[in-house]
Design a protein around this nucleic acid. Structure first.
Lengths: 351, 351
DNA sequence: TTGTATGCGTTATCAG
DNA sequence: CTGATAACGCATACAA
């Protein structure tokens, strides 16, 4: 690998000059600049980022920690982050805190704790690698998360989390809005027994606001809130399948189910069919995320749109701003959600 | 940030000793080691990776370039890579060569070229960042790809690509096997008009061997090879929907269609239903990748399994070996594929 | 068993 | 307009 010195020797100048030519950091005579640029080309010189990082402290790298790579939802967010990062010449380091072999069927407290441990480890690993900022989809508890972020003292963007702190921002979807829309639609279709199949992450914006919107909508409509209609599907289709089966086996089964992800809803449709329920005639089903597959599934899946790709882009934009200017006031950015109706929802049928 | 010197000062030793304690690279008196370790803890010292990288040339980072983040298939591969990399303390930089906004409906030669340009740019960017190796799911032509890899001179693993070179290995799935199994099954079910909806990447192992297996199976069975039954779905469900519609509108439409991805097959099922075809009664459909969603779709989707997660793990294992020992002989590793039958395939119906 | 000194490839501060 | 030179934080050859 050629270095500044090699280039300088070839161009017959000091390597200071070469550095300045590269960075455009001071005026260089037209003639010398050309000599230097030619030497750079001839030697195929590429600056050594490690040396640069050591000197300036800028690694031009950020880290993204997310739960899993096996749901298209966060994949879309990540794709957005990567696109924007590349424009800013940032590299994106990734890590998933959930292992794929770990079968969530055998969930336990230990499993959950392991995810959090891994998340913490990844954040530390990122810091060690000298990332200039992180984007975090966390599963830790508020207090833990806040403490770790404080000790890391890195610019950060929290995704779907409302935790305040000096060096980070909060980007959340308006889950209350999206769920409210879906619920009101179901209620207007005459549904009164509406079940909820949740994901994990007890302190996440997602879980808190969707559940609240569910309960509020029922209350507003004068319908009692029946907690037995809430099940934890852990964002896992296999678990969702089981929970849906349980719900449908109730003596007074729900006529509609709202899921926290499209893949869980797909499993729900499956479970319903297997149990002899027709969707949407006997059971209305609504997913979450509005993945492109919703257009193709049978029946087409009603869902709630979250603008995942755009959020990814904008989280990275904001992170870059914060890296540029660490003193920025923390902000909370909310994105609207929108209920999208397709074919998996219908008027309740009199039984 | 505390440095070696700070630790040394606090422990009352030279910073050489501190370095040796950290790396376990020479024997240190029990008593001094303890003093040093305490100082490390008290100062919460973390080695500066940039400095380490500058000195040793080891950044402990690898890069993964893939086409898109919007198909679960490669997401599973990536998840495997990340898991294994983390065990080896490697960071994983990612990049997607396809933009999400670019709507493949409006495909053109320029679009394809743009992907390749971006891929090349990402590889260069990785090299600049000092990655110690790359895992590449390439869309470039063989010659171009080989040339770039040679000039980068980095340890690499090519995914789904058979291009030989001094510093890289080839990891491929046995597409010929998987497609052959699927085709033989269809033929044994009495199908004679079997269509193929392909993905892009003309020089990829995927496209070449699946098409060959398709043609060979037909020939072996004494069925003529009708090229009008081959369409390019570009791995995009929207395109697949259109192509399926076209196929079904033929005067002599296929009775079975094999898709290059599960998401394209899902769109195929949709198109079939919309055109009044029942799956599998009027039309058999087979996907590729064996995603977990196949268990839930309606009908359950027959597909070809590729062991994506395991391949991800093992590509990273191999890359680490090659980084450790760059002189390793290049290898070609093949993974078996297996046809998995579910509900989207049936005996051909006499029309 | 421990310490001193050098250099990795940059950027930045001087001085000319 | 240009060039010496120091320093970033670490690993390591060499000395003691």
């Amino acid at each position: 690998m050629a270095t500044l010195k090699d280039v300088a020797a070839r161009a017959g100048v000091s390597y200071t000059t070469v550095s300045h030519v590269i960075n455009g950091t001071r005026t260089v005579a037209e003639e010398t600049r050309e000599r230097v640029e030619r030497a750079i080309r001839e030697l195929a010189f590429r600056p050594n980022m490690a040396a640069k990082a050591l000197r300036t402290g800028e690694t031009a790298t950020v880290g993204v920690v997310s739960i899993s790579g096996n749901d298209l939802y966060f994949a879309e967010v990540l794709h957005g982050v990567q696109e924007r990062a590349w424009n800013g010449r940032f590299g994106v380091l990734i890590s998933y805190s959930e292992l794929t072999d770990c079968c969530p069927e055998h969930w336990s407290d230990g499993y959950y704790a392991d995810i959090c441990d891994r998340e913490r480890g990844h954040l530390e690993g990122f810091a060690d690698k000298g990332v200039q900022g992180v984007i975090v989809n966390s599963l830790q508890e508020d207090a833990e998360l806040e403490e770790q972020l404080r000790s890391l003292n890195l610019p950060a963007v929290l995704f779907q989390r409302l935790v305040k702190g000096p060096s980070w921002d909060n980007f959340v979807c308006d889950d209350y809005l999206g769920t409210s829309q879906a619920m009101e639609r179901l209620i207007s279709l005459g549904h009164r027994r509406i079940a909820l199949v949740e994901g994990f992450g007890f302190e996440s914006h997602t879980v808190q606001f969707r559940k609240r919107a569910w309960a509020d909508a029922l209350t507003r409509a004068g319908i009692g809130v029946d907690r037995t209609l809430v099940r934890n599907g852990r964002y896992d289709p296999a678990v969702s399948l089981k929970k849906t089966r349980e719900l449908l086996a109730l003596s007074d089964p729900p006529t509609a189910i709202l899921y926290y992800s499209d893949s869980m809803a797909m499993a729900g449709i499956r479970a319903a069919r297997d149990a002899g329920f027709s969707v949407p005639d006997d059971l209305s089903i609504i997913g979450y995320d509005n993945l492109f597959t919703d257009e193709y599934s049978v029946p087409r899946l009603s869902s709630v749109n979250q603008m995942s790709h755009r959020i990814g882009l904008e989280m990275m934009t904001r992170l870059a701003e914060r890296i540029e200017n660490p003193g920025l006031e923390p902000i909370v950015r909310r994105y609207p959600q929108e209920y999208i109706e397709r074919e998996s929802t219908a008027r309740v049928r009199v039984r």
